[in-house]
Design a protein around this nucleic acid. Sequence first.
DNA 1: GCCACCATGTAATCGGTTACATGATTAA
DNA 2: TTAATCATGTAACCGATTACATGGTGGC
Lengths: 198, 198
Amino acid sequence: MLRLGVRTGYDVKRAIDLSTRFFWGASFGQIYPELRRLADAGLVEAEDDPRGAVKRRTYRLTPAGKRALERALTSRGPLRYEVRDEGMLRLFFGDVLDREDVLANLRLMREQHEQGLAYFRELEPKARDGFTEKGQVFPHLALSYGIGFLEWAVEWCRETERELSRRGRSRPTPPEGTPAPRRRPARPRSGRNRADGR
Amino acid sequence: MLRLGVRTGYDVKRAIDLSTRFFWGASFGQIYPELRRLADAGLVEAEDDPRGAVKRRTYRLTPAGKRALERALTSRGPLRYEVRDEGMLRLFFGDVLDREDVLANLRLMREQHEQGLAYFRELEPKARDGFTEKGQVFPHLALSYGIGFLEWAVEWCRETERELSRRGRSRPTPPEGTPAPRRRPARPRSGRNRADGR
DNA sequence: GCCACCATGTAATCGGTTACATGATTAA
DNA sequence: TTAATCATGTAACCGATTACATGGTGGC
């Protein structure tokens, strides 16, 4: 972010939150100590730059820091890729749940992705003409990826909901070892009663 | 996983590695202590079940454990969703790199996703008729999601590579504050020289 | 006067990985 | 014989979040 012209820890946080957050987030508790460490390592240069009575510390990359960044962005070898997706985890165990519960999870998942999508779309016009400077095209490209993915995911959820609704009232897999799986009594859910008589 | 009939810590690991790993992984260092904790909490029941001279400990859910699982799978409220994607991070900073480096990153990213895709496709026929038992459909559904996503991502990379190759030789954004950005000398890369004269 | 925002930082804790240690069993 | 697989576990560490503490500035 310093490389793109961002200067304070606070600004780094803000920049991340409206750009890379979707695929690489960070918290203050990470950013401030890290800037300190980078300064100790000679990769960034710190300067006190108070605004009135407010202490304020600006950073910029040193030549060594620039080189280190470039190496980090061009090295070969496997790219880190990790996901934690509770929605998918729940779906995976869908055989253990009632069909209604699975559908509720799918809806929850879809709504969450739809919210993300709405947020990204708000961001888009701003991202189109440069992130911190004019002429930048890749932040917008990254955003397009996010939008494209979320559109795909929302559509996947929708289709899966449809598919699951269409299929007959299939019962969940009986638990292993259990002789006769008793239906658990219908729990009242979020204020409204179910239309069907289960 | 215990709920689906898996019984030892070792088996839990294996089950995860060929199913939820893509959206929820775990290591031995997490699994064994966790089984211990769950036993202490009364959510699972442990039993020593040695195979010959090999000590072996099997677990199964207690009724309380089953209830806790069901609660965890049906609670409302936001679903955890986190991604770390180094490929996208690199792409985001593409304005700072040469076009060749960006393309190399896109290829790297695509190849990695293609490998994942190949692996998932191998898994598919097995997943189709039940994961640990017959009649399960959701593990296969989760796999389809993974395949669908990777297909989408691979296609996105391919199109972006094409788009970027088509576009004229646009130079990277000049670094902030620097008066006259000197071109860094072409580093020799992986055995072959560039075709163009940069 | 109040709230939102700018701004920096630390301590406790957490979730998780890596590396290591150990050893039996089975198939090539 | 050797390698892969089954099997359990711990210690060190790491990356990261959460919660807290502090306080100035600008706009309504």
